[in-house]
Computed example of a mutant assay.
Amino acid sequence: MERRYASHPNEVKQFDTARLRQEFHIPKLFTPDKLELVLTHEDRMIVGGAAPVHQEVKLEIDLKELGVSYFLERRELGAINVGGPGVIIVDGTEYELDTKDCLFIGMGSHEVIFKSKEASNPAKFYLNSAPAHQQFPTAKTTLAEAESGALGSIENSNDRTIHRFIHENGIQSAQLVMGMTQLKTGNMWNTMPSHVHPRRMEAYMYFDLPEDAVVFHLMGEPSETRHIVMRNEQAVLSPSWSIHSGVGTSNYTFIWGMAGDNKAYADMDAVPMKDLK
């Protein structure tokens, strides 16, 4: 598991492109038959992916990194499948996940195993994990069952649908919040006008992008914006002090995950367009 440290906004102002990507960009999430994880010291979130193809993948790491006897002893986990049909086995119970289905796995779950139904169309499980102070039951929701709502307009190139999976009115958790935003054809902008939420960090994972398409992920303080070029199935970390908007060369989908002081999706501090620099 790779470790990333938290960065002060005054320091980030001095970063060049390579350093910015080193600190916040996660280029590889899905390696066949392996587990890829990044631990950030921003609210101790873990971001990663499990890509079972020819064999099962277990949620196993060097536990010295967490100081526990098993991964979810003091953590909870959210998994969203962005590949073909798959299965997650939690302490012997199987949960089938089709594309864009979500499974929340509560604190105290000992064994978690990821597998695909077909090697020719493997599952890809995108993972977010946060520390937990209370145990909540493992629960699954499908894209159709999620709380969904439309935002934006074609006039502003941001006509999109937001699906909330793990949140205060959906699957219950100690602090993890996860959902997905789908932009309609012909739309490129997300989360603009931008905002920050100083009480929570966030991670984005962009997917459903054509091979030659990119998303310019905007970050930084409103008065000191920067960008990171994102490609299909890559993730980016967003500190609590940073905006997190993006614009693509085509429409796309992204998964957002948050950890921090509350689970209120609407708890954000708006940034007026005139203040962006």
Rank of each mutant, 00 (worst) to 15 (best):
A6G: 11
V12M: 12
V12Q: 07
K13R: 14
K13V: 04
D16V: 06
T17S: 10
T17L: 11
L20S: 08
Q22W: 13
Q22P: 08
Q22N: 15
E23R: 12
I26K: 07
F30L: 02
T31N: 09
L35C: 12
V38T: 15
T40S: 14
E42F: 13
M45H: 04
I46M: 10
I46G: 06
V47E: 03
G49L: 01
G49Q: 04
A50K: 01
P52H: 11
P52I: 05
Q55H: 06
E56M: 08
K58E: 12
K58V: 05
L63P: 04
L66W: 06
S69I: 00
L72H: 05
R74K: 15
R75L: 02
E76M: 03
E76F: 01
I80L: 15
G84E: 10
P85T: 05
T93C: 07
Y95T: 01
E96I: 06
K100Q: 12
L103D: 14
F104S: 11
F104L: 02
G108V: 08
V112H: 10
I113C: 03
F114M: 11
K117Y: 14
S120V: 08
Y126M: 13
Y126W: 14
L127D: 02
A130W: 00
T142A: 12
A146Q: 12
S148Y: 11
G152H: 11
H163R: 11
I166F: 13
G170Q: 13
Q172N: 07
S173G: 10
L176H: 04
M180V: 08
T181N: 13
Q182C: 12
K184F: 13
W189I: 07
P193K: 08
H195T: 06
H195Y: 15
H197W: 01
R200S: 09
E202R: 09
P210L: 04
V214W: 10
V215E: 09
V229L: 14
Q234V: 03
V236E: 00
L237M: 13
L237E: 10
P239R: 03
W241N: 09
S242H: 12
G246I: 01
V247C: 07
S250F: 03
N251D: 10
N251I: 00
F254M: 05
I255Y: 09
G257V: 07
A259F: 02
Y265R: 01
A266I: 06
M268S: 12
V271E: 10
M273G: 00
